[in-house]
């Protein structure tokens, strides 16, 4: 009798588990749908013309093949994104700041990232005069981690560049006072690099 009950119990439990698994699968499918969404709306972004304007302006002033790439980043609220080359990065930045059509006077964010094959500096700019935003990116070779500093253009790039140098080891040439701002000069290694090995493995 007791055994029978136990069996029933087990059966019930198994059924419940199966139900839960089914529910989870459903959920998973729902999330997959969510993910597919961006792909579905293949129609051009409302910001496409803004990006075209930027690219046009840059091509007019600096010539073609200045940018490595330019696209609308749909994951980031459709922001026009420009990818400069390391040697044109500074020129593009200068144009972005001083050109009247662009006039990006506000540096909202600057940081770097290690993508193993290369490193990247990501700059988010905003123009108070024209009410528009742009993301400027540059890919740097891991063998030569040097890039011109933006401090002469935007004072606000000062500490963020120090931080990037501190955590990733990207050197900004022309920076007035490049120092390891958070960790201190005696720190060994650059923690945000993917190949960084923490001193204490346990932590």
């Amino acid at each position: 009798m007791a055994e029978e009950k136990g069996l029933e119990q087990l059966k019930k439990e198994a059924a419940e588990k199966a139900k839960a698994a089914a529910a989870a699968r459903e959920k998973g499918a729902a999330s997959a749908k969510v993910k597919e969404e961006p792909a579905e709306k293949a129609k051009p972004s409302p910001n496409q013309h803004i990006l075209d304007k930027y690219v046009q302006e840059i091509e007019n002033h600096l010539g073609k093949e200045i940018l490595e790439d330019s696209y609308i980043n749909r994951l980031s609220k459709d922001i026009p994104t420009l990818v400069a080359k390391p040697d044109t990065y500074r020129k593009v930045a200068e144009l972005l700041k001083y050109n009247e059509q662009l006039a990006f006077d506000y540096l909202s964010e600057l940081h770097g990232g290690d993508f193993e094959t290369h490193m990247e500096v990501y700059v988010h700019l905003y123009s108070f005069t024209n009410q528009q935003a742009v993301a400027l990116k540059v890919k740097i070779e891991r063998s030569n981690l040097e890039i011109p500093s933006l401090v002469p253009l935007w004072e606000g790039a000062n500490w963020p560049e120090c931080e990037t140098y501190d955590l990733l080891g990207i050197r900004f040439t022309g920076h007035p006072d490049l120092k390891r701002i958070l960790l201190g000069e005696e720190w060994i290694g650059y923690p945000l690099r993917k190949d960084y090995e923490p001193y204490d493995v346990e932590v």
Partner: peptide, 17 residues
């Protein structure tokens, strides 16, 4: 909202402020 237990955003990057 109905979100999966383990959230996996699509490949790419995003910056919001």
């Amino acid at each position: 909202a109905k979100v999966p237990k383990i959230i996996k955003p699509p490949k790419g990057e995003s910056f919001v402020r």
